[in-house]
Amino acid sequence: MNVFRILGDVSHLLAMIILLLKIWRSKSCAGISGKSQILFALVFTTRYLDLLTNFISIYNTVMKIIFLACSYTTVYMIYGKYRNTFDSENDSFRLEFLLVPVTGLSFLENYNFTPLEILWTFSIYLESVAILPQLFMISKTGEAETITTHYLFFLGLYRTLYLANWIWRYHTESFYDQIAVVSGVVQTIFYCDFFYLYVTKVLKGKKLSLP
């Protein structure tokens, strides 16, 4: 476990907590894509099935349970408790455009043709594109609340730190998980445009709005 990995996990957790706090305190999930949150819940569910079969460490188990809990709570907030505030009109990304290719690819390109491995691979591929409905929603409405941009920033930071973690692990442990690395690079690229807007607008105290 290296410092990039720990900081990456902390950023990931922070992103999820920021999102939950935003919804909780404003009693509203306006501007949040429920579809992205459903995809993230699906990502964690299919990836963490190994909670039942394989013990790695206390840290690993506890974090997985926290991630699952945060993710399902967020989905419940959007489609249950605060569904009146959910902007379903603008959350119009077609999920089948992501789910069909991701499912196909996870059957074609995996480490082992076993149900658990295919589901793990599915979760890795799906995570790399799961934020697209959220980014699509922002580009459609042309703006995002500042707190939503903080959420996206920490999510992107988590991805970037994981890249550093993999470089570190490659040099120190000769560890190289090709599926995770390639998907991780793709996923991080999706955040680049957003990072630019975050630094040039949000950090200077302006609201993120697109021309």
């Binding site: 394989n54 790695i56 991630f67 480490y111 998980d177």
Partner: peptide
């Protein structure tokens, strides 16, 4: 190659 002992990352 295949990661040993399952996947240890989150």
């Amino acid at each position: 190659q295949e990661p040993k002992e399952g996947h240890d990352e989150l």
